[in-house]
Nucleic acid binder design. Structure first.
Lengths: 210, 210
DNA sequence: GTCTATAGATTGATAGAC
DNA sequence: GTCTATCAATCTATAGAC
């Protein structure tokens, strides 16, 4: 391997450009140009553009899902120990905080969060389905714990409220750090923790609404 | 005009395909094929693909914005008459209800709502900017009335909560009626009014969160 | 206004030398 | 594994006949 990091370089460049321009608008030439590797390298290492998109998600989503599952299980276990229902806010935090923190904790994952937001609204059915498949176990556990925490809430209603929350979250992630000009007197969140706090207040209140 | 409705046919076809596949993935050939008009007709009638995208938004957004502005002003005027603050839920309803109802009330606008949701997360800066410019007046009035209704809430916090709400709304609109398979035991909203009610409960609680 | 034909650029993918 | 060269398909846009 003359360039042992060719695959990494391609993944980094693809992640960055997919986040900025979307999947379909980003050409392999743009990716290999930014990564400073040969055009043919993408098909050699990944097989196709579609497979590259999958690989970009795979690289970050596997560790992120591990963290989210772990945190969610902790919240569930803690509630069981005390014999209480899981606190909806803590359940939501276990899902949301690692996701939004990911850009700080995982080196080079800055653009990935934008990408996740983008995948949720992706027109291309195959890309969106691929993404949703990978999230499903986390979503199911999240839904289950929220249902335990809010047992009086109709399951269908809970499901739709969770869809609203995920939509809001996708938008936040997609546009995070990309508000070019804010209106007069509007302050951006101090840091990620401040954003998480703001978002959790909003979404918890929404989920617990009468 | 041998085919007096050529422009309309193109607009209808473009609206439908943009909603299904996104702006960049929809070719002029697909549009003119569906509209059963000649390929060159798009450039003759609209000048360019970019201008066609604008025209698609223009056609629906002008009347929709009129309705939303009227309703918002009504809520503001009513509150002023009674000498009370505008009720946040009614303010939000004045913005949200006409938007979600639009697919029922405006003939042929079924796909447009999906399109609005799509525009919010559009990677292409020019498309998103074009869209945001056109709803700015509505957004400003909405923000102002909410600020009157929740004067104790920091303006920056209000702004970000409103962003969360718009993100959730975009997601709802984008995916409305496009959930191919729901999980077991999950019921879709009975009708648009039921969806509006669910969404308003969620979003009002989020905006009013402590 | 509608059509055919085509320019001119860009795309994903691959064959084959090294 | 990396490179050059290129294919075949696609795209937007336009020129010019009718």
């Amino acid at each position: 391997m003359a360039q042992p990091d060719t695959k990494q370089r391609i993944l980094d460049a693809a992640e960055s450009l997919f986040a900025r321009d979307g999947f379909h608008s980003t050409s392999l030439r743009a990716i290999t140009g930014l990564a400073r590797v040969n055009l043919a390298a993408v098909n050699y290492h990944f097989g196709s553009k579609e497979a590259l998109i999958e690989a970009v998600f795979e690289r970050r989503l596997l560790p992120l899902n591990e963290i989210r599952l772990k945190k969610l299980r902790q919240v569930g276990a803690l509630a069981e120990q005390v014999g209480a229902r899981p606190d909806p806010k803590e359940v939501l935090r276990a899902f949301i905080a690692p996701t939004l923190q990911f850009r700080d904790t995982c080196p080079g994952s800055h653009d990935f969060i934008t990408l996740v937001g983008r995948a949720l609204n992706e027109p291309d059915e195959t890309v969106r389905t691929m993404f949703i498949e990978r999230i499903r176990p986390v979503f199911l556990l999240l839904f289950d714990l929220l249902h335990q925490g809010l047992p009086e809430l109709d399951r269908s209603l809970l499901f739709w409220r969770l869809q609203f929350a995920l939509g809001a979250m996708g938008h936040v992630m997609c546009r995070a750090g990309r508000f070019q000009s804010l209106p007069d007197g509007i302050e951006p969140p101090r840091d990620t923790e401040a954003l998480i706090g703001m978002f959790l207040d909003f979404v918890t209140a929404g989920m617990e609404a009468p």
